[in-house]
Design a binder for these strands. Structure first.
Lengths: 330, 330
DNA sequence: CTGTTAGCGCTTTCAG
DNA sequence: CTGAAAGCGCTAACAG
């Protein structure tokens, strides 16, 4: 255990109160001389402030916690970067805790680690809380905001892309390039986000007068494996000329499986990914994508929890990024 | 601010001490009846323990902090998973804080966030602290351990792969498959890790009686871009038949650049990656790798800080994982 | 088995 | 400008 404020008070020959004041830099409340003395003593003792103790009395903290849903999703990084950048602007620190992979037990653990100590606010990256855990979070009286996830049934603050638009624009993109038989691979319709994407997809198809075959929509969990399975289901002799990967990972799964099946991308099959993380540039051909602005999501998230009453945007923009995985038809 | 132990004491008609005991589950120190009363009251008030306050008095915490070096390196995930798994076994919680990208200022920030509150120990994933910051860390009197990084000049606990062996075995692997002109791409010789890899590489080459051309070793920062640049430097008409990517990302950079140059992998050029993270399986052809056991590093890290005096391994094993990027010559 | 007391390290009135 | 004192929420003796 290191030196305390008392130790340095003794060494400097002043009272603990004074030490507290100079260390907190309450200018005007101590003489230059005392200031020097105290700081010297602090340095000599290698003093490290016990912030927990300070927070106990001031009843407020400057850390914001980000709970992230497993390490599998690769878009957490840009969100976290956004959070950090904005947090540092407000002189806030951020800690991250992993909540496992949709395991309520792990979620609970993550939540309590965070709730049980004075954090200023909580950001949840793509974590879908169980009812119990949501209740726990709400009862904690700490400002929170969900990121990269949306809900239809419950009323909580969240910031994400317009998932309906994601599905709609992805489909539109392919339609505009002459495709009419378009698959959607690896999407999870158990949750709002996925349902919205499917819905946007269907609307675009319908507007184009295309009847969606049941097999065109392959459900999954956005994973690489889900993409592979979807492509496997489509088969080598698929009638599809294009498929939308429900995530970057799913799209890569589709890509690699297509290749295994002997299909050339984009010659035989076009692929459009959803997310637009760095992985799109790593594979060959580079995957065109409907890209989300994850960084901005992080920024908006900390703004939201900092001023919960402000009517900040709940929707971050999306945009098409063309790379090399789409072929213009006709 | 939520209910405190006092509130529930009042509601249950007992003393705060008693409440503390039942909530801490000190069995044998309270009657079943009191237990019930207290728990009921706690639930009714939606009580959330203030762990910071508890830690203040017990002077010990059950959180272990992991400081990670930017989000760029993708091997952080398996290490963190290992840390989590082992930590949970010991009923420890883990928080993560990002230390930016070799920016001393950000490092310092991360360090103080962590030091200023009672964490039980600190794990540093692949972060190379500046002298000042190392001093800060050491003076904090908190057990710590570096992961996935090594040092020659300073004496600190660390756990990593044997980087000399990494370089040596990578080279051996290629040698055994008939290659003699072998490049090493994207390695950073400013630090111990990189120097060791280069040294292992040179030794293996020397043993095989091969004279390493200066241009064969292309320095860099292990990034995708570094891999690209290295391959660009080798050129389309390179005499090399194989190159070792200093990291997975560097290897992918080499791969994609080779393709841009019109080289087929592995027909014209073999590639061996170092690290063996999931990215190796995502690209085509899948990259063979000298794989590190990152998960194990995480596990060993928490063991090390839990029992600093035990003579636990400082070295985690590596192994060759064959995929599709190496061609057997002759 | 339970209440009382002291105090963790810090900040913050309140008097001087 | 500075010291004394109170107290944040909790635990840990110490008596009963």
């Amino acid at each position: 255990m290191g030196a305390t404020i008392k130790d340095i008070a003794k060494l400097a020959g002043v009272s603990p109160g004074t030490v507290s004041r100079v260390l907190a830099n309450k200018t005007g409340f101590f003489s230059a001389q005392t200031g020097e003395k105290v700081r010297a003593a602090a340095k000599e003792l290698g003093y490290q402030k016990n912030t927990a103790a300070a927070e106990l009395v001031t009843r407020q903290s400057n850390v914001i916690a980000a709970i992230v849903n497993s390490t599998k999703t690769n878009f957490a990084s840009p969100i976290i970067e956004g959070i950090q950048a904005e947090a540092h602007l407000h002189d806030l620190n951020v800690i991250i805790v992993y909540a496992g992979d949709d395991d309520p037990e792990q979620q609970r653990r993550a939540l309590t680690t965070v709730i049980e100590r004075p954090v200023r606010s909580i950001l949840l990256l793509s974590v879908d809380l169980s009812a119990d855990n949501l209740q726990l979070l709400q009862s904690a009286q700490i400002p929170f905001c969900f990121l990269s996830i949306s809900f239809d049934d419950i009323q909580v603050p969240y910031i994400t892309s317009d998932d309906w638009q994601v599905g709609y624009q992805a489909t539109q993109t392919l339609l505009q390039r002459g495709h009419r038989s378009i698959g959607l691979a690896g999407v999870d319709s158990d949750f709002h986000t996925g349902r919205q994407r499917v819905s946007g997809y269907r609307q675009a198809m319908q507007e184009a007068g295309i009847r969606v075959q049941p097999a065109w929509v392959q459900l999954g969990d956005y994973s690489y494996a889900a993409g592979q399975q979807a492509m496997q289901a489509y088969g080598a002799d698929t009638a599809l000329t294009a498929v939308i990967g429900a995530s970057d990972m799913a799209a890569v799964g589709v890509l690699n499986q297509a290749r295994s099946l002997g299909l050339q991308v984009p010659t035989d099959l076009s692929i459009l990914a959803i997310d637009g993380t760095t992985i799109c540039d790593l594979v060959q051909p580079a995957l065109s994508s409907i890209s989300q602005n994850f960084y901005e999501m992080g920024v908006a998230g900390v703004r939201q929890v900092s001023a919960p009453d402000d009517t900040s945007q709940k929707i971050t923009p999306i945009k098409l990024v063309e790379r090399q995985s789409i072929r213009q038809l006709k």
